[in-house]
Design a protein around this nucleic acid. Structure first.
Lengths: 192, 192
DNA sequence: AATTACAATGAGTTTAAAGTCAGTGAGTTT
DNA sequence: AAACTCACTGACTTTAAACTCATTGTAATT
């Protein structure tokens, strides 16, 4: 059984992670521990009670983020979805985390190495699911003879491009505003 | 006529810009003025004789970079190239600046606003040329009925994805190693 | 009830970066 | 050739971030 202290500690840890998530989503990963502490309503030192370094905080945050994405996608793969439904679901998941995800793909190369590994894992889960759906779809729809990794990378490439250049397309959420267009045209591209 | 001093000053300015280019290409835009001064073999203060702030240095560097890319591409558009040749030429230009360009697309969102404008200009030049080539190509080759901006964005999306995730594909230059594959499959995608 | 453990605090330390400026000596002007 | 100008220098200042630690008060243990 958990003591009051343990409960309190875990709660504080979660508050810090949530605050960091929000700060990073809004400001990018250059947000400081001062800002995070203020947002979490804890003192600066408390952050270092829970996380030895900022890098460690980022890695923990990314691991949590990865699990959450994973969960969302697992629910999807159980159903026997069409390609179109899957792509829509993928975008819908990303919309939930849009600001944070945008910062992540844009700044991943300046994050600690371990963070990259976590990110690669996230990508491979998506890759795996898309792979399955495409294989299934090939029986129904005529899909071009193009290597699977190109099919996958051009999908991710397209939506990452829209995300990192959001400001070129809309003032609001680029995924919300261009979802249908992206899915429709991407399918046109890979269909024979 | 230029005095010795003017010549000297311009030379120093160029040396600093070149050193900054190299440092940013190798280390990303978190490279410091100390590093740049060392690489340029000038004292720290000299940088601020030529550029009032680091942001200004970055903007000047990007403007020069933009002009260079522009020059390369203008030479291309004069000739009546095929789509395949144009894409190959585009990649070849990027290969010349690969490390720097990689950092640029990956960190553009954390650079000063003015830098973004310069970058948008660079993109639109490429967009304009690709547009022309595609329009011309439509007569020869059956290209899908997909909006031009999707055609353009999926090309840039694809190569930017390969560039920012270079490490997933190869230890060396991803453009050199995957050039043919990228061009070939991209054309397959947009062709009817 | 007394003692011990520890989560949280926030002022203080360290570090590293950008930016400043008086001084120097070679170049330029008169 | 004397007076002046200015590119360049590098030690210094400022700023802002991460990280530390003695102290405090509440929870847990004895």
């Amino acid at each position: 059984m958990k003591t009051k202290r343990q409960i309190q500690k875990e709660a504080t840890r979660k508050i810090i992670l949530n605050a960091a998530y929000q700060m990073y989503a809004n400001e990018g990963f250059s947000a400081t521990t001062n800002q995070i502490a203020k947002a979490a309503n804890v003192s600066h030192g408390t952050i270092f009670v829970h996380f030895p370094t900022v890098d460690n905080l980022i890695i923990c945050l990314l691991e949590r983020f990865g699990s959450e994405i994973n969960e969302h996608l697992h629910l999807l793969s159980e159903k026997d979805e069409s390609l179109e439904t899957f792509l829509a679901a993928h975008i819908n998941v990303l919309i939930c985390y849009e600001d944070f995800y945008k910062r992540l793909i844009s700044e991943i190369n300046s994050l600690p190495q371990e963070a990259k590994y976590v990110f690669i894992n996230i990508q491979s889960v998506v890759s795996f699911h898309l792979n399955q759906v495409i294989e299934r779809e090939k029986e129904k729809m005529a899909i071009k003879e193009i290597p699977m990794h190109i099919i996958f990378n051009s999908w991710l490439g397209l939506i990452h491009y829209y995300l990192t250049n959001n400001y070129l397309f809309t003032a609001g959420s680029v995924l919300t505003d261009h979802k249908d267009e992206l899915i429709l045209n991407y399918i046109k591209l890979i269909r024979k």
